[in-house]
């Protein structure tokens, strides 16, 4: 039992929270991305695109609830410090998520002429949610302060996250659809990838300049050389990914899954890069994860539960993805 000290438990829960955020960014990232890229000029494509995320989006958004929930229950003071600083962007995020979440169901059930309205709602809600997430990330990187420079950076970061989600969303469509829609997704994926690439480059440059301890972490050996691998892998994925996109689609739809998997690697690398930069702070330069953690007993009782429950969640998530493997072209709604 000695191993489960308060510090270790705090670290475990920081890891779990980070894991939930990362998984959310990947999973809801692709379904928000499908919303962002929704082809408004072709109804049939829209139906297929939305059908491809239909069975998954509810569960994807649950990772956001878990991430915010873990922050709330394991690091209550950080939860309130971060969310109070981000009060208005959070409200924008929620409104975006509400709009797209309900549009999803309404579009399938209303009269034909009203459907396009909910499709716009779906697209706009997705863009709004993605932008506000990027905006919040920007403000977080800038130390949760609102200056004209940090606002500018946050808006830029917002655009980049919209592009990054559009990238993973289009790559999801490349994997899950075929024919004309797939070609459309390939074109869009190239555009989104270019913007995302520029954005990541900018964050890599700005972050060490703004946060002195970030600069220290990334420039002090021996970790500096190890961490150098993170941007290198990330950029390698962009170069390779572009080459793959240029060649797709191949015969028998070979390699259609490659861009999606490569984007996941890019997301992971960016996330690890950020996580490493901020450790041990949960609120940049203010509160460390050890100071913010709740009582040991409470962490322990949640830890025990998580050990049993998370494998079960993983298992039935696999069942769901396995059940809906393959192309989404003829997915029917009941």
């Amino acid at each position: 039992m000695n191993w489960f000290t308060h510090e270790n438990l705090a670290l475990i829960f920081a890891g779990l929270t980070a894991f939930a955020v990362l998984l959310y960014a990947i999973l809801d990232g692709y379904d928000l991305g499908v919303g962002i890229t929704l082809p408004m000029h072709n109804e049939e494509w829209r139906d297929t695109a939305i059908a491809s995320i239909g069975p998954f989006w509810d569960a994807n958004e649950t990772w956001l609830v878990l991430a915010v929930g873990l922050l709330l229950v394991a690091f209550p003071s950080a939860h309130s410090a971060i969310l109070k600083a981000l009060y208005l962007p959070v409200a924008v995020l929620l409104i975006g998520l509400i709009l797209r979440g309900v549009a999803f169901d309404f579009r399938a059930k209303v009269k034909a002429h009203q459907k396009i309205r909910w499709d716009w709602c779906f697209k706009m809600g997705s863009i709004l949610a993605a932008f506000s997430q990027g905006f919040m990330l920007g403000i977080y990187i800038m130390g949760l302060e609102y200056t004209s420079v940090s606002l500018l950076f946050a808006c830029f970061s917002g655009v980049c996250v919209v592009a990054a989600y559009a990238l993973i969303g289009n790559n999801w469509l490349i994997m899950k659809t075929s024919n004309a829609l797939q070609l459309f997704a390939i074109r869009r994926s190239k555009q989104a990838g270019t913007i995302t690439f520029g954005g990541i480059l900018a964050v890599c440059l700005v972050n060490p300049l703004v946060n002195t301890n970030v600069y220290e972490i990334w420039s002090t050996p021996p970790f500096a050389s190890l961490f150098a691998a993170i941007p290198l892998v990330c950029f390698a994925m962009f170069v390779l990914g572009y080459q793959v996109l240029k060649r797709l689609p191949l015969e028998d739809d070979k390699g259609a899954w490659l861009p999606f998997v490569m984007t996941i690697v890019i997301f992971c690398m960016c996330f690890f890069g950020l996580a490493v930069s901020f450790y041990p702070f949960v609120v940049p330069n203010q509160i460390t994860l050890y100071d913010a953690a709740s009582a040991r007993d409470s962490l322990m009782i949640m830890f025990v539960g998580s050990v049993f429950v998370i494998p079960v969640i993983t298992a039935y998530t696999f069942v769901a993805y396995y059940a809906f493997r393959g192309k989404a072209d003829n997915l029917r709604y009941y």
Partner: peptide
């Protein structure tokens, strides 16, 4: 905290994930 955490872990994921199969 633990009560809310257990709600998310034992209920939210279960319903949200399997809803896809149900629908």
């Amino acid at each position: 905290g633990p009560l809310l955490a257990y709600e998310i872990l034992t209920a939210f994921f279960l319903e949200a994930t399997l809803l896809g199969i149900m629908l």
